[in-house]
Amino acid sequence: MAFGITSITLITVDILNRLEKKNKKKRCLSADTRVCLKGFGIFLFGFAIAQLFNEVLKNAVGRLRPHFFDVCRPNVFFINCSEGYITNYTCTNREHSATILRNIRQSFPSGHAVFSMFTAMYLALYIQIRLNISYSLILKPTFQAGLLLLSLLCSASRITDHMHHCSDVIAGLILGFIVACAVFYSLGTKYLNNHNGDSICSSDDIEENSVPASKECQIPLQLLHEKSKCTRLKSKTLTSSSLIV
């Protein structure tokens, strides 16, 4: 869903900008396409950074998920609770694979919270800097609020499904928020700024406006040229008449 929502959002922003520039008779279509591709590339880079932090923390902390006992069903008859933390146990549930049994010891932080908040925050910042429309004042904040709401709903579902503790989700949201801001303000503000596109637009507009002006000036120039011919002919006529006299 993160990749799908990101692709749809970037394309939507590009289309809205094209419509806005079409109404203003600007030509920046190729520049907008390049910026859109750069935005998706920066998103992939940030997604990889978030994945790296998430995997390192999950394997380093090794916190048990809320449904650990239901999935593992450890043999409690051979566990001595007086020893404190139990590190040696045997799962008696054979219905699940080794991957699932390893996954139940990777609760902190919530990967869904990390990726959903990273996606929502990155796209909210992208919309803030890239979407420029004059016909609606609430469209931009509506998009941003909707993305953040989807992230919070996805994160909250991990608590209601008993897949994560509340602290796991909060830590994931904070981590995703930090990674999104760090990646965007280090790369996004440099490569996705509207000033680059505006400079291209202004140069195109100058060229476009200069062509009609030259065409309009062709008629007055022809008239001036004809007038100069008439003046020269008159001067020659006056000179010949004076010689005759």
Rank of each mutant, 00 (worst) to 15 (best):
I129W: 04
T142R: 05
K25I: 06
V169S: 08
L16G: 00
I206K: 11
V211C: 02
A171Y: 04
S228D: 15
R18G: 04
A50C: 13
L224W: 04
F53T: 09
A2H: 06
G41W: 01
F53W: 12
L64Q: 06
L37A: 11
I170S: 10
I159L: 11
Y89M: 11
R34N: 13
A171Q: 05
T33R: 15
R34T: 09
P74I: 00
I79C: 12
L149W: 11
Y85E: 13
S30C: 07
D14T: 15
C181L: 09
C166F: 11
D32V: 07
K190D: 11
Q218K: 13
G84S: 09
G4E: 06
P109G: 04
L139V: 10
V61T: 06
G176C: 05
L101P: 00
K236S: 11
S242M: 13
Y85D: 12
F143W: 06
G4M: 02
A120Y: 02
F68P: 03
T189M: 09
I79D: 09
H164S: 02
F115H: 10
P141A: 02
T237G: 04
S228G: 03
E55Y: 08
S107T: 00
F47R: 00
K22I: 13
C181G: 04
F184I: 01
K21F: 14
G111F: 01
G46L: 06
A182F: 13
L147R: 08
L44Y: 08
I49D: 11
F108K: 01
P66E: 01
L233N: 12
L175Q: 10
D14G: 05
R27V: 07
F53K: 02
S210K: 11
P66C: 03
L147T: 08
C28N: 13
H164E: 02
E216S: 10
T12Q: 12
V76G: 03
S82K: 14
C154F: 04
E20H: 12
R232V: 10
S116A: 12
L148P: 00
I159N: 04
M121Y: 08
L64S: 09
C217Q: 14
F40L: 12
S97M: 00
Q144Y: 02
F45C: 14
S157A: 15
